[in-house]
Lab assay of single mutants.
Amino acid sequence: RVIAMPSVRKYAREKGVDIRLVQGTGKNGRVLKEDIDAWLA
């Protein structure tokens, strides 16, 4: 299970990103909004 705040999950869904593919850089591997942006870049 991916650790991410609900707002980040929603952001990823809106961008069409599968959050399971994104490498989290936050505490304990948490996926941050910046990680979604970096994955899209």
Rank of each mutant, 00 (worst) to 15 (best):
R1E: 15
R1Q: 14
V2M: 06
V2D: 07
V2H: 08
V2L: 11
V2F: 04
I3N: 10
I3A: 08
I3R: 10
A4R: 04
A4I: 08
A4F: 02
A4G: 06
M5R: 13
M5Y: 14
M5Q: 13
P6W: 05
P6A: 10
P6I: 12
P6Q: 08
S7V: 08
S7F: 07
S7D: 15
S7M: 08
S7K: 12
S7L: 08
V8R: 01
V8N: 03
V8G: 02
V8Y: 02
V8E: 08
V8Q: 02
R9E: 11
R9M: 09
K10W: 10
K10Y: 09
K10I: 08
K10G: 06
K10N: 08
K10T: 07
Y11P: 03
Y11A: 07
Y11H: 11
A12Y: 01
A12L: 02
A12M: 01
A12W: 02
A12H: 01
R13K: 11
R13Y: 15
R13P: 01
R13H: 12
E14M: 15
E14F: 12
E14T: 11
K15V: 11
K15I: 07
K15Q: 13
K15N: 13
K15G: 03
K15A: 09
K15S: 09
K15W: 10
G16Q: 11
V17Q: 01
V17R: 00
V17E: 00
D18G: 03
D18S: 06
D18R: 04
D18L: 06
I19P: 03
I19E: 02
I19L: 08
I19R: 01
I19N: 00
R20D: 09
R20M: 10
R20E: 10
R20K: 14
L21H: 10
L21M: 13
L21Y: 14
L21E: 09
L21K: 13
V22F: 03
V22T: 03
V22L: 09
V22D: 00
Q23D: 09
Q23M: 13
Q23T: 13
Q23K: 15
G24M: 02
G24W: 02
G24N: 03
G24A: 07
G24L: 02
G24T: 03
T25H: 07
T25N: 07
T25G: 05
G26A: 05
G26Y: 01
G26I: 02
G26E: 02
G26N: 03
K27Q: 10
K27Y: 12
K27D: 10
K27I: 09
K27G: 09
N28S: 09
N28G: 12
N28A: 14
N28H: 13
N28K: 10
N28Q: 13
G29Q: 07
G29T: 04
G29Y: 05
G29M: 08
G29L: 06
G29K: 08
R30P: 02
R30K: 12
R30I: 12
R30H: 12
R30Y: 11
R30W: 11
R30D: 07
V31K: 04
V31W: 01
V31N: 00
V31S: 01
V31G: 00
L32W: 05
L32E: 12
L32G: 06
K33F: 09
K33E: 07
K33R: 11
K33Q: 09
E34H: 15
E34W: 11
D35P: 00
D35E: 01
D35T: 01
I36M: 01
I36Q: 00
D37V: 06
D37P: 00
D37K: 05
D37W: 04
A38T: 15
A38N: 15
A38Y: 13
A38D: 14
A38S: 14
A38I: 13
A38L: 14
W39Y: 15
W39M: 08
L40I: 15
L40Q: 05
L40R: 06
L40W: 07
A41M: 14
A41S: 15
A41N: 14
A41K: 11
A41H: 12
A41R: 15
